[in-house]
Simulated scan of single mutants.
Amino acid sequence: MDINEQTFKDEFSKFISSLQKLLPKKKDFITIEPLKPKVIRLADVHNEAKSVFPKCFIGTKLVIMREILDRVKLLQQYNYGRCKESYKCYDLFIHKEMEPKSPQEGLLVDWTGSATATYNESFDGYDMRLISKIKDLISSENEITLEKCGEKTVASVSCTMKDVDPNTAQLMAHWMYQIVPELTVGTELGIQPMVYPPLPTVSISARYEKPSFTLSGTLSRLGFQGCLFKQMDSNLRIATIVNEGPKGPATVGIALSKKYLNGSYLKIFVDSQRCGGFTVQKDVLFHDPPNELRVVSLVASVLLDRQRRVRLGFGFNLDF
Rank of each mutant, 00 (worst) to 15 (best):
251 T>R: 14
191 I>V: 15
257 S>Y: 03
178 Q>I: 05
68 I>L: 12
146 L>W: 10
38 K>V: 01
59 G>N: 00
269 F>E: 08
306 R>I: 13
69 L>N: 11
111 W>P: 04
179 I>V: 05
219 L>V: 04
250 A>R: 14
306 R>W: 10
143 E>P: 13
109 V>S: 00
198 P>M: 07
223 G>N: 07
194 M>L: 12
32 I>G: 10
284 V>K: 12
278 F>C: 08
265 Y>E: 15
94 I>D: 01
70 D>C: 01
138 I>F: 12
220 S>T: 03
27 K>V: 11
44 D>K: 11
84 K>A: 12
292 E>I: 05
228 L>K: 05
27 K>N: 10
299 V>D: 03
26 K>L: 08
232 M>H: 14
9 K>V: 07
167 N>D: 15
101 K>E: 09
180 V>A: 11
238 I>Y: 11
127 D>H: 10
210 K>P: 09
272 S>H: 15
21 K>T: 11
188 E>Y: 03
140 S>L: 03
257 S>L: 08
191 I>H: 03
314 F>S: 05
294 R>P: 06
11 E>P: 10
94 I>Y: 02
94 I>W: 01
140 S>W: 00
192 Q>Y: 04
203 S>P: 01
230 K>W: 10
110 D>F: 00
82 R>M: 05
204 I>Y: 06
201 T>C: 09
239 A>E: 04
62 L>A: 08
272 S>C: 15
198 P>N: 08
295 V>F: 01
121 E>P: 02
127 D>C: 08
149 C>W: 11
210 K>F: 13
186 G>I: 04
74 L>K: 04
285 L>M: 13
118 T>L: 09
133 K>C: 09
36 K>W: 05
149 C>I: 12
185 V>I: 13
221 R>M: 13
162 K>M: 09
118 T>Y: 05
74 L>M: 08
186 G>R: 03
212 S>R: 11
177 Y>I: 08
128 M>K: 05
118 T>V: 15
285 L>P: 08
231 Q>C: 06
114 S>I: 00
268 I>L: 14
204 I>L: 08
112 T>K: 09
154 V>R: 07
135 K>W: 06
18 S>P: 03
305 D>W: 09
